[in-house]
Design a protein around this nucleic acid. Sequence first.
DNA 1: GATACTAGTATACTTTTGTATAGTAAAATA
DNA 2: TATTTTACTATACAAAAGTATACTAGTATC
Lengths: 122, 122
Amino acid sequence: MNDFQELIRKEEEQQQRCPHSYVLALTDTMNVISGKWKLPIIASLLRGKNRFKDLLDNIEKITPRMLSKELKELEMNSIVVREVYDQTPVLITYQLTESGKSLANLIDTMINWGLTHRSNVL
Amino acid sequence: MNDFQELIRKEEEQQQRCPHSYVLALTDTMNVISGKWKLPIIASLLRGKNRFKDLLDNIEKITPRMLSKELKELEMNSIVVREVYDQTPVLITYQLTESGKSLANLIDTMINWGLTHRSNVL
DNA sequence: GATACTAGTATACTTTTGTATAGTAAAATA
DNA sequence: TATTTTACTATACAAAAGTATACTAGTATC
């Protein structure tokens, strides 16, 4: 293959690749939902559990270390906001942002794919 | 809290939990797409790359070990079928199943969530 | 005053996931 | 005959992710 053919091939390849912004968007989404505890935490928050202890009780087998770590990551990714109510005793809540709440649609799509896949495989 | 109250509380909690089949479906979906290389492989297959070498060349930095390992997992999960054409030299292709192809919709949903999230965060 | 609850943190460890590097067998090409 | 191509496998290792267990500080309750 000569240089010209190689150039053509590369250009064709470029056409087939999806835009870089799509790759970034997909990576962002994966970062938000991947790991053992992200989706259980988000699902619990969608159901209205919003205190540390609520989540700890609601999510089976999660340790405080993991819950704390994951909540921090979700906060950094703007999925969750941590709010401190300066009462006595202090009350701390974790609320989903708009982006966080909008994950419900994605989760639905994932559940639907999973259900269809199960019926395909049988 | 007495036993009756506890019972009521548990029943309310049950109502809030999503059906077990949904949890299974979501877990299935996560298993299919999680890991560093699953989505790049699926995306390449969607673009028509179907030989081992094609994928190896098309997916930046993947090693043959990982490609082989992931393709086997995708095959076990009925996302991909490996076909051996008994020519000489032998030709082996990896094709997406219907379930595999239908991941394109899920990927689109994920990209759209990611794009919206990026614009929300700015 | 002792115990319990909330909201976590600290340390050490195990398991899972991914990487680096080299090698194989069968056929095709130079 | 030597090198290249396809389609992988093998071994060892490093890094990331998750677990187990214990602990803390502040307040509240018995």
